[in-house]
Design a protein around this nucleic acid. Structure first.
Length: 206
DNA sequence: TAAAGGATCCACT
DNA sequence: GTGGATCCTTTAA
């Protein structure tokens, strides 16, 4: 399990360091899901127009972002998709990292059932990739729910990160924030080179 | 392969 | 009343 100090660092240091780390989630039914993180985005509230905490704004939705590093911030987007963030830095510093894609390592059966209602051996090739190659997709595959997990601590026995092999990390602009002014051009997305579970491959023109 | 539109809902203004 | 840190299906080339 990664220690508290891992999370309580500058967000742009934590984000690339999350690539290769393994997300672990153990459900009450005993199922143990593991996914190796291959794509993340940093959101740095006070100075980031794309962040839910831009300007330090505190609301009922984003209150978990103000907790200490290592807290989970889960929100619902477009009314139906659950997305999970890892909160960074210390209490009162509303910054975090969105988990955008993972490579499934364990619990394939549960993921496959949640995503497609099929067994893993019944998945088509694209379905296998689409299991967890996006923030909403991995949320569904892992059974992440805001009601159960928002504000949860990553230093517990049921939700935690563990060390893993870090590949070649690249960076790019973030995805899906065209209306965020200058912040849309920040290179705050980090992903593993040549990993098939990375969601998108935007052209980077610096 | 790319582009467009619908789904769906609650926090925020 | 509005719109989003997305996903999926349909349509068109």
């Amino acid at each position: 399990m990664l220690p508290r100090q891992f999370y309580e660092r500058p967000t742009l240091d934590v984000a690339p360091d999350l690539i290769g780390k393994v997300l672990n989630l153990i459900h009450e039914d005993g199922s143990h899901l593991k996914g190796r993180i291959v794509e993340v985005e940093a959101y740095i509230g006070p100075n980031d127009r794309a962040s839910h905490t831009y300007g330090g704004k505190q609301t009922t939705r984003n209150q978990a972002m103000f907790k200490r590093g290592g807290t989970a911030y889960v929100y619902i987007i477009y009314g139906l998709h659950h997305c999970m963030n890892v909160v960074t830095r210390g209490t009162g510093k509303p910054e975090g990292v969105l988990l955008r894609a993972v490579e499934p390592l364990a619990g394939l059966h549960a993921m496959s059932e949640r995503r497609y209602g099929k067994r893993p051996d019944e998945l088509t090739k694209p379905e296998r990739i689409n299991l967890t190659n996006g923030p909403g997709k991995l949320g569904q595959a892992f059974g992440i729910s805001r009601d159960e997990m928002n504000g949860h601590d990553f230093l517990t026995s049921s939700l935690f990160l563990e060390d893993g092999e870090r590949g070649n990390v690249l960076q790019s602009r973030r995805i899906g924030i065209p209306n965020s002014g200058e912040a849309k051009d920040y290179l705050w997305r980090f992903y593993e080179a040549d990993n098939p579970y990375v969601s998108k491959h935007p052209k980077v023109t610096v």
